[in-house]
Design a protein around this nucleic acid. Structure first.
Lengths: 128, 128
DNA sequence: TCGAAACGATTACGACTGTAAACAATGACG
DNA sequence: CGTCATTGTTTACAGTCGTAATCGTTTCGA
C-alpha cells in the first residue's frame, strides 16, 4: 500500500470518457458504451470492457445483471466528480483559493467576453 | 509510443512538489531541494534525486554544473504550468467554457464571501 | 446439433509514478 | 593517506494506465 493512500481511486482520463457516456445515458451494455465512446476514441470493444471493469472495481459505476450480460450505470454523479476535480485543482495550484483561479484565468485572457458577461450575471444572482 | 503521444511530458504530483520548491527559490542543489521539500513530504534524498532527474528529462528544469554537483532551476514558469493545467481542467470538465467552471464553483458553494468580493473587483478591472 | 457470435474474466505488456536502494566517482577530514 | 560523506547515475519494484488479445462459457441461428 504505497500509493493509493494518496490516490483514493481516481478516475483516469480514459475512464472518464466511459463515465461521460454513462452520464449521458444509462444503463448501457458494454457494447453500447463501446458504440458511443469507442467510436471517436478509436477503442476496441475489449478496451471498453477493461475500462468498465476497472470502474466497477473503483465503485464508480454499478453493473446490474441482465440475462448473461450487465447493464452499467454511474454510481457517482457527474457533479460530484466535477466538484472533486475542481477542488483538487484549486488546492493544488491556487492554495485552495478559488478567487486565485479566477484571477489567473482573467490574467491569462482565458475568459471570453461571453464568459465575463455570464459571470457577471451569476455574481448578481449570488448576492441575491 | 502508446501513451506519451496523449501525454506530452506531464508533470506528476510528486514532481510538482519539487517544482514548487524551485519556483520559490532557485537555483538549488539536490540537497537543498530535499531539505525544503523532503521535509514535509517525508521523502528521502534518493527520492528527491530521482524526481529531479525525471524533471530534467522532461525539460521542466535545467541543471547547471557547479563543481561536482548541479544547481537546478525551473525552465518552465509557474504561470505557464498553472495555465496549462487550468485550461486542461476547463477543457476536460467544462467543455472549454471557463464560465461553466465558475458557475460550478458558485453552485457548489465553493466560493467564500472573500472570493466573491475579490472576483467583483477583478471584474471591474476587466471592463476597464 | 454444431459452429459462430457475444459476453465477462483473465492475462498481457510497455509506459509512467512513487519511492527508494545500490553503485561509482570524488572530495573532505583526521 | 585512508576512510567517510557527498553527489549524480543506475537499477528496482510494485501499482496505475492505455490498449488489447485470449479464454471459457453460453446462446442463437442454420
Amino acid at each position: 500500500m504505497t500509493k493509493q493512500a494518496a490516490n483514493p481511486d481516481r478516475i483516469s482520463d480514459a475512464e472518464q470518457a466511459v463515465m461521460e457516456a454513462l452520464w449521458t445515458r444509462s444503463p448501457l451494455t458494454a457494447a453500447e458504451v463501446a458504440d458511443s465512446v469507442g467510436e471517436e476514441r478509436g477503442w476496441s470493444l475489449a478496451t471498453v470492457k477493461t475500462l468498465l471493469s476497472r470502474l466497477v472495481g473503483k465503485n464508480a459505476i454499478a453493473a446490474q445483471p441482465d440475462g448473461r450480460r450487465f447493464l452499467y450505470s454511474p454510481v457517482i454523479a457527474r457533479a460530484d466528480f466535477v466538484g472533486h476535480e475542481s477542488r483538487r485543482l484549486v488546492d493544488r495550484l491556487f492554495g485552495g483559493k478559488a478567487a486565485s483561479l479566477f484571477a489567473h484565468l482573467a490574467e491569462a485572457e482565458a475568459l471570453s467576453d461571453a464568459d465575463i458577461e455570464e459571470i457577471e450575471v451569476l455574481l448578481r444572482e449570488l448576492r441575491k
